[in-house]
Design a protein around this nucleic acid. Structure first.
Lengths: 123, 123
DNA sequence: GTCGTTGCAAAGCGTTTGCAGCCTA
DNA sequence: TAGGCTGCAAACGCTTTGCAACGAC
C-alpha cells in the first residue's frame, strides 16, 4: 500500500507549482526546500511512480534528459526556444493526423515539438 | 581536412542502405560486415560528424537512445508501433502550425511522432 | 612526414538498484 | 510491528574522451 511521506509530498508540490516541465535535478532542488535531506534516487523513484499513475507526464526533448510536468492539463504541445533553452506550453492542437496513416495503422497518441525563437529572443 | 577511410565509408553505407533509422549499435553491427575491427567509439564519432554536416538526421524517441537516418529525404515524420517497437516513416506532413504560436514567436522546425499499432500488430 | 583518424580503455552523465535502517499506518 | 520508503553508494547503459598507434594524402 502507498504511504504518505514528506518526500513524496515535496516532490508532488515541486511539480505542481512549477508551471513548466522540470528536469529531475530541478525537482530535487525545489523539493529540498521542503525536505533538505532529500536524495536524488528518491526523486527518480517517485517521478517514476507518478508517471506510472499518470499523475505526471514526461516531456522528451532531443538530446536532453527528460523533463516532467503535472498531468491533467488540456492536450497541448511545446515550443523549445533555440536561444534561451526554455520550454513553453502551447495551447491546443491543430493537427489532422489520420490522413498520414498507412492502411491498417491505428493511432493512439502523438507528440509535437516546435522549435524556433521565443518572443524575447527574436528581438 | 577530411579523410576517406574504410570505417567512414562503412558507416555511411550502413545508414544509406538501412532504409530506416538505426541505433548506434545497429550501425556498428552493419558496418562491421565491411570493417570487422570497427569500434563503437568510431561509430559515434562519425555519426556525430555526419549529423553536424547534416548528412544524417537523429531521430529521438521517448525513453530510448536516438536512432539515425540518412538525410536528404523529403520532409516526413515517424510512427512508432507500441507492440513491435518498429519505427515507420510516414509521407508528408499535414500540420498547420503557425496558429499555435504565441505572438512574436518564430518557428524554425518541428517534430511529430505518432504512436499506436502498425498494420501487422493491430490484427 | 603530417596530422586526421582509429581502437581501446577509462571517464562521464543521467538513471536505476541493492541494502540496511527508518517511519507510516 | 510489518513492510513500504528512504539515503547512500555502487552499478548500469549509452556516449564521449585521452592516448598512443595507424594510415591517407
Amino acid at each position: 500500500m502507498q504511504r504518505d511521506t514528506a518526500q513524496r509530498r515535496a516532490i508532488r508540490r515541486a511539480l505542481d507549482e512549477a508551471g513548466r516541465p522540470l528536469g529531475a535535478l530541478e525537482v530535487l532542488e525545489r523539493a529540498q526546500r521542503d525536505v533538505p535531506g532529500l536524495g536524488l534516487a528518491t526523486v527518480y523513484r517517485n517521478i517514476k511512480a507518478l508517471v506510472a499513475d499518470k499523475a505526471v507526464t514526461p516531456v522528451e526533448l532531443p538530446g536532453q534528459p527528460p523533463r516532467f510536468e503535472s498531468a491533467g492539463k488540456d492536450h497541448h504541445h511545446h515550443f523549445l526556444c533555440a536561444a534561451c533553452g526554455k520550454l513553453y506550453e502551447l495551447d491546443g492542437c491543430l493537427v489532422e493526423l489520420k490522413p498520414l496513416l498507412p492502411r491498417g495503422f491505428q493511432l493512439r497518441a502523438h507528440e509535437l515539438l516546435l522549435h524556433g525563437l521565443c518572443a524575447a529572443c527574436s528581438k
